[in-house]
Design a protein around this nucleic acid. Structure first.
Ligand code: SF4
Ligand code: SF4
Lengths: 136, 136
DNA sequence: ACATTAAAGACTCTTAATGTCTGTAATTAA
DNA sequence: TTAATTACAGACATTAAGAGTCTTTAATGT
């Protein structure tokens, strides 16, 4: 029970794209080099992010990816959901009416997700930039 | 990224054992029937719970399982950890100094876990009994 | 036209989860 | 002492998901 590596790659990618300035397009090659991944593999992850509306892609020469226009609202949860899907961690298919076990699990998971929803990429990106500026 | 079925089985088993009265021993056969599982498979799960100190086993004829003496302190988190291990959900092996991504993920996970730690089996068991009593 | 780039899909490989089967050791009952 | 019952351990098979590669297609700019 772990988050997939793909989620990790997606988060790195998203932070990287968030930091980019202006409308500059970044190709999958650059993103893959940064994380030492195969471009084709990362490509699938990027497609998921694009389908989730978190990034925008431009095909063709000089094409690439850039962060979505909703840049300032994208949370960690958004990224995770785009990759992992937004299914519940605890999946009892039976769903008995008013199940106490499900209630506990769901509530706990909810606590995690509200936290992930409150953390925005833009904040992390700013913090990362600030550190770099301080030379730390 | 889901909790394993084993965790589900473990939770049901633990609630069931918590509800048992006195020191009555319950065999794996009964526990397996209850959940419509193969006894041998459930046996492995029970062994994990026993190793985790959540239940106590007695071998031999008339043997079986009963809830641990720490009955009143066992939380959902205890059960989950006994089955899934207590590793982190987000496993970046690199662990860069002061990583912002890890910080966010760890904090969110912590929120879930504190919730799971606060929920005790005994409370769920009591609630379940109360419902039964009310005929609901 | 040609080079570049994202997108899609088929495919393989690896790993973890799920589950079965068989045998062993401990305990009780006869 | 023997037999039945039960937990425990380990080998094994099956399945499902994740991780990753390769090839082809479509879109875009030069
Ligand atoms: S009681 Fe809850 S967890 Fe158990 S089978 Fe029913 S719905 Fe699932
Ligand atoms: S920055 Fe954080 S998440 Fe990324 S590789 Fe380093 S430790 Fe892992």
């Amino acid at each position: 029970m772990k988050y997939s590596n793909a989620t990790n790659y997606a988060l790195h990618t998203m932070v990287y794209l968030t930091i980019q300035e202006g409308e500059k397009l970044v190709g999958v090659q650059e993103l893959a080099d940064m994380q030492r991944l195969s471009p084709t593999y990362l490509s699938k992850i990027l497609t998921k992010l694009a389908k989730g509306g978190l990034i925008e892609s431009t095909p063709g020469a000089k094409g690439g990816y850039k962060i979505s226009r909703t840049k300032h609202e994208i949370s960690f949860l958004d990224v995770i959901n785009a990759i992992e899907g937004d299914t519940s961690l605890f999946d009892c298919t039976l769903h008995h009416e008013g199940c106490l076990i499900e209630n506990v699990m769901r509530e706990a998971e909810e606590n995690m997700k509200t936290e992930l929803k409150s953390k925005l990429l833009i904040d992390i990106a700013r913090e990362a930039e600030a550190r770099q500026f301080k030379g730390k």
